[in-house]
């Protein structure tokens, strides 16, 4: 064996290729251009779906809270205060003063 064998043998491919494969491969590759594939960014879709779902959930919880647990009317508070004894009122006011003291001093 000599260098000529090296040049000849290497260029001959021992592999088999199915008949008509190259025509089919060219047609497939050309079809890629016809389909006009857009650049896909799956991570961007994931983030968008996640943020939208979170916003929708917050909105639903807020609306449910408003309709299922409405704030009691003002009259209820006024009746409750009117029914309190003098001592309870004094204690409630003292609590407020005490809390304010803690807050600001």
């Amino acid at each position: 064996m000599n260098n000529e064998d090296f040049n000849l043998a290497g260029k001959r491919m021992p592999y088999a290729v199915p008949d008509g494969y190259f025509e089919q491969a060219v047609a497939c590759a050309e079809a890629i251009g016809e389909r006009k594939i857009k650049r896909q960014r799956p991570w961007l879709w994931g983030i968008s779906i996640g943020v939208s779902s979170a916003l929708a959930a917050v909105l639903v919880i807020f609306i449910c809270n408003m309709y299922l647990f409405p704030a009691p009317p003002m009259e209820q508070y006024q009746n409750f205060i009117a029914q309190m004894s003098e001592d309870d009122l004094a204690n409630a006011c003292a609590d407020v003063e005490y809390m304010e003291e803690n807050l600001y001093y």
Partner: peptide
């Protein structure tokens, strides 16, 4: 499994070496 000729032939031995 892939080659179309005998493993002893020169082109097959060449590809195996490659």
């Amino acid at each position: 499994e892939e080659i179309a000729c005998s493993e002893e032939e020169m082109e097959a031995r060449f590809q195996k070496a490659l």
